[in-house]
Design a protein around this nucleic acid. Structure first.
Length: 720
DNA sequence: CCGGGGCATT
DNA sequence: AATGCCC
């Protein structure tokens, strides 16, 4: 059942590649001992979501009056995107403001340099998708991949044999009604799921978008844009060569960028067809064997890269570009300004950056817009602490000299200089738990007393997420959101809606935290409808087969702590999760509610509806009650948020942790640990062992640090 | 070539 | 730590 034997469509799919000499076996698979026969997996069903003119949509939600007018989103002197009214009048993406105004003098412009609102909405989108299936990968702010293979299999199992059903939306190169879903039941079900998710996104967030349904990420992305806007397209295996073949330029292939395209062109390869036909050896001479194979595969529509959960960002940065900056005073002021907003964002994130980087772009006549230089340095701990919990202004003031030091390493201020961009970036983001314990050992952990301050911080973040949620942000435009469209002052200044706390996005993380917290404390505080005690209890109580709680409890305290460390957790994921791209941890599937099963749909499913609305309901939460009995007295407000993502626990709560042991930890420590877990990538591939051959699009994350140490700890667990 | 963000390589 | 490449 797990390696569900292929039906006809699988065979057809496979056959379509069999003749390709360069084709490597569709990786994945072989989670167990490689039985030669069963190792070819059922093909995956991958969805790609691509929101329509994303920034413009967000602005139109914030101010519905903009829906009726041609709207362009302006960053500096560029229209980065525009609504469809504007497109009808000849405005296009990445058009200069001058050209756009020429084409469409009535064009209304909204400044889009502050990404806060876009970022927030972007994460809401990802969270919404994740609430149905945790395997979601972000690509930029407006695209998401989703691996729904498991969901499809579940539905397939429930389908009545004779049941006749069809594809939702378009089918690439087919008069959609032609195609019988029974020939490709999995893709057909994928198209149903895509349709339902798009509807959910629309009803819950007010956003429209396209979806592509195919057997891998490459194809899903390529096919999703076939019908725009607000439509979806399924690609059948038999049409793979069609969609690849009609790509005029290799550049159209996701994963082939400018540089790669240029190098290919030097080999005389321009179209995808050229690339398909080019001998692998020729490619290997230019790119090396692995890259050559990847390129060739991509040209054929082959892509075995897994959908990798994106999780929280690995870095936060802020930048500004300008015509000219040539004095250190300006540089210092601009840097300070950038640092201020970055520090605020960093603080809301909750993690503590260990590295600071300053990037600049120097003006050069030789037109190298792209060349940026950067210098980076460690952030002294005392400064890091100010960023996350101290005075923001102090933090900025201490970072500024650091930044200037880096600046002087790149610019000789004795001579004239001319900058056109400054970027500040925090990376190497660590949770306080990790920061507090100092590098390797977690020993001082328990001596840390519970920190009221931190709890408060978490709470306020929760409230921030809360207040920033809600689809109709219209009302945020009190009186200042009116449309202006004169030529002198072409841009509307986005109402600075500072009211809706910048509290961004890691709603993702926070909500996941809440989910875990709720589960841990549910006896004390779970009181709301939609909270299924069995489900949540299981999520936390269940241990994977290779973990012996009894053994765990007998371990020395410090060893236990190491086992709870994020590095260990992630290493566990990376080694225990199967290499198969199609195998989803079985725990995460069985409990998926039937939210999407029928045309009935999402909104009618209590569970889903509760989830999706949670953000709007947080304010209605009962703030009192079991304050005394909860392990997190200050955080009652979280329970609603937690209930909204009951299923995430499968994916997010490390299964190797003994809940009893965990529950005996101080609340503060529990919270820190959970916070850490949230930031690990739940799905990790081992980059060394198997080699699914990552595509250019894959991320292939590694477990952070301490791998060897963590691995040694495996001996404390039962062999699986 | 705007604003981000990520990964791999050196 | 710095650059390149990708979206």
């Amino acid at each position: 059942m797990e390696n569900s034997e292929d039906e006809e469509d699988e065979n057809e799919w496979r056959n379509s590649f069999v003749d390709s000499p360069t084709h490597s076996p569709p990786a994945a698979a072989a989670s167990g001992p490689s039985i030669s026969e069963t190792r070819v997996p059922a093909h995956k069903v991958i969805l790609h979501f691509d929101l329509d003119c994303f920034y413009a949509q967000v602005e139109m939600i914030r101010n519905p009056a903009l829906r009726e007018v041609p709207l362009g989103i302006q960053q500096k002197y560029i229209i980065v995107t525009c609504n469809y009214v504007a497109r009808e009048r000849g405005v296009n993406k990445l058009m200069s403001v001058t050209d756009a105004k020429e084409k469409c003098p009535e064009l209304v412009l909204v400044k889009g340099e502050d990404l806060t609102h876009y970022r927030e909405m972007s994460y809401k989108m990802t969270e919404l998708l994740m609430s149905y299936c945790p395997l979601v990968e972000r690509l930029g702010f407006d695209e998401n991949f989703m691996d729904v293979t498991e969901m499809v299999e579940q539905r397939l199992a429930q389908i009545v044999k004779s049941e006749d059903f069809s594809f939702k939306g378009h089918v690439y190169n087919h008069p959609s009604a032609d195609v019988k879903a029974s020939n490709y039941p999995r893709l057909a079900l994928g198209s149903h799921i895509a349709a339902e998710l798009r509807e959910a996104v629309h009803s819950k967030l007010g956003l429209t978008g396209c979806a592509g349904i195919a057997t891998n990420k490459l194809l899903a992305k390529l096919v999703s844009g076939t019908f725009k806007p607000n439509q979806q397209t399924t690609l059948l295996p038999e049409n793979i060569s069609d969609i690849m073949g009609c790509l005029s330029s290799v550049r159209k292939v996701p994963g082939v960028g400018h540089q790669t395209a240029k190098r290919l062109q030097a080999l005389g390869l321009v179209s995808v067809k050229d690339l398909q036909l080019c001998p692998l050896n020729d490619l290997a001479k230019e790119f090396g064997s692995p890259t050559a194979q990847r390129l060739k595969n991509l040209s054929l529509g082959v892509d075995d890269s897994p959908v990798t959960c994106t999780g929280a960002p690995q870095s936060l940065s802020d930048e500004d570009s300008f015509k000219k900056m040539s004095s250190t005073k300006e540089v210092s002021e601009k840097t300070q300004q950038l640092l201020s907003s970055l520090v605020e964002r960093m603080r809301k994130d909750g993690r503590q950056p260990q590295t600071f980087r300053l990037t600049i772009r120097k003006y050069t006549t030789t037109n190298k817009w792209f060349s940026r230089e950067s210098r980076q340095c460690p952030i002294p701990d005392h400064i890091g602490q100010k960023i996350s919990s101290g005075s923001s202004d102090d933090a900025v003031m201490q970072l500024l000299p650091l930044a200037m030091k880096l600046f002087y390493r790149m610019v000789d201020c004795g001579a004239p200089f001319h900058l056109t961009l400054i970027n500040v970036c925090f990376s190497n983001l660590q949770t306080r738990a990790a920061a507090v314990t100092g590098k390797g050992s977690i020993t001082s952990f328990f001596s840390q007393s519970t920190s009221p301050k931190k709890s408060q911080a978490v709470l306020s973040q929760c409230q921030c997420v809360d207040s920033s949620q809600g689809i109709d942000m219209d009302h945020q435009f009190g009186t200042d959101g009116m449309i202006t469209q004169h030529n002198k002052q072409p841009a509307i200044q986005s109402s600075s809606s500072s009211s809706s706390s910048e509290a961004p996005l890691h709603g993702l993380r926070w909500k996941q935290n809440f989910a875990v917290i709720v589960e841990e404390t549910r006896n004390a505080s779970c009181s709301t409808a939609g909270c299924d005690p069995d489900e949540t209890a299981n999520a936390v109580t269940r241990l994977p087969p290779n973990v012996d709680p009894e053994v765990f409890k007998l371990l020395p305290e410090d060893i236990q702590k190491e086992l709870l460390s994020p590095a260990y957790v992630s290493s566990l994921y990376s080694t225990s999760s199967s290499q198969s791209g199609t195998d989803v941890p079985s725990t995460s599937k069985s409990k998926l509610p039937e939210t999407l099963t029928d045309s009935e749909s999402i909104s009618d499913t209590k569970d889903a509806a509760n989830k999706l609305n949670s953000s709007n309901r947080v304010t209605t939460v009962n703030h009192q009650g079991k304050a005394g009995t909860s392990a997190f007295p200050e955080e009652e407000v979280m329970e609603e948020g937690g209930l909204s993502f009951p299923r995430l626990s499968d994916c997010e709560f490390p299964g190797n942790v003994d809940p009893k042991v965990f529950s005996e930890l101080p609340p503060d420590v529990q919270r820190e640990l959970m916070s850490e877990w949230k930031q690990q990538k739940p799905i990790l591939k081992t980059s060394s062992s198997k080699k699914p051959g990552k595509s250019l699009m894959s991320k292939d994350r590694k477990a952070p640090g301490k791998g060897s140490q963590a691995n040694n700890l495996f001996k404390y667990f039962k062999p699986s």
